[in-house]
């Protein structure tokens, strides 16, 4: 990973208007992504991981959604200020995505060849023969056996794991700078998950692609990511290098998460640690620490004001009152 920042998300806010009120799905998220970096976004269901990344490529359904604030800078250029032509040039080419369910991005009625060739021709200006060659080469890299034959098949003729490989091949066929992978292995079995993650890691390292990996699995981020952002109720509550997050988690939510998972490498004894309560509803959240009702370390100030971001010297930061002067004064 280099020091060159290629993507900057600054104070992103994405809201959805529904009957019950305004869902603040993402409410002030900021992070940087460097060339070649693998960044993990972890958090519970509904914490805003997918919405963050759909916002990055400006794919929020409007209405009910809208970008309520902030910027996404790709090489310094604001994605939200781009024309639809400019954004199309980036999406699927410079920034590509893979999803948990490959069928959401594969067209069931078209042969794999048609779908891949179309994208490659569109973005890379190759002839269709050249594009097909490139597509076969990518499928081969992705570990599809007999790609010259399989390429003319339809998506339903592939198993779940193979469809995920096809997706990865398609997503990387245009040599993107950024690959956004939203729960790419959550629907897969462990042995297949291991195959796919290894494939993703190998290909993106070889091609120098930066990855934003969204997952709820702490095990997956531990093995795959350079850096981690932990999301809770629409905000990033902690970020840092992977080793730091696991070794010295600072935010009580991160600490709780790490302690709650049963471990394969440890003896099972006694009760598991568990965070009490449930994640909050992100409609009409009061302006206080959203983790307050579940936090063992909560103080008075936590229910009055949203905590500021506190930076630690190892490049780690957390939004929590524990580490502020205010906390020491009360």
């Amino acid at each position: 990973m280099s020091d060159e920042v290629i993507l900057q998300v600054k104070d992103l806010k994405t809201y959805f208007t529904v009957d019950e009120g305004v869902v603040k799905a993402v409410d002030g998220v900021s992070f940087d992504l460097r060339r070649g970096e693998t960044l993990g976004i972890v958090g519970e269901s509904g914490s805003g991981k997918s919405v963050t990344n759909l916002s990055v490529i400006n794919l929020i359904p409007t209405p009910p959604g809208k970008i309520a604030g902030g910027q996404v800078l790709f090489h310094g250029k604001d994605i939200f200020a781009m024309s639809s032509g400019e954004i199309r040039e980036i999406r699927g080419n410079k920034i590509s995505m893979i999803f948990q369910d490959p069928m959401t991005s594969l067209n069931p009625f078209l042969r794999i060849s048609t779908q891949m060739v179309e994208t490659i021709v569109l973005h890379q200006g190759l002839s269709s023969e050249e594009a097909k060659k490139k597509a076969i080469e990518m499928l081969k890299l992705a570990g599809i056996p007999a790609p010259e034959k399989r390429i003319d098949q339809y998506p339903h003729q592939f198993s779940g794991g193979m469809r995920q490989r096809v997706m990865i091949a398609m997503a990387l066929s245009c040599n993107p700078e950024i690959l956004i992978a939203d729960e790419p292995t959550s629907a897969l079995d462990v042995t297949i998950q291991a195959q796919i993650l290894e494939l993703m890691q190998e290909l993106t390292h070889r091609l120098g692609t930066a990855v934003i990996l969204i997952t709820h699995s702490l095990g997956v981020v531990a093995g795959m990511c350079d850096t981690i952002c932990v999301m809770y109720a629409g905000r990033i509550v902690e970020r840092g290098r992977t080793e730091a997050i696991f070794e010295t988690p600072r935010h009580p939510y991160t600490m709780g998460l790490i302690r709650s998972v049963p471990r394969l490498d440890q003896e099972a004894k006694g009760r598991l640690y568990s965070i009490p309560g449930q994640p909050p509803n992100v409609i009409d959240l009061p302006d206080c620490c959203p983790f307050y009702p579940r936090c063992e370390k909560a103080m008075d100030i936590c229910k009055k004001k949203y905590p500021p971001v506190v930076s630690f010297d190892n490049d780690q930061s957390a939004s929590c009152w524990l580490y502020t002067k205010e906390a020491r004064n009360v």
Partner: peptide, 12 residues
């Protein structure tokens, strides 16, 4: 067993 991820970057 070897495929299951472990939430510890050093072990991984």
């Amino acid at each position: 067993l070897s495929a299951a991820p472990i939430p510890d970057p050093k072990i991984e």
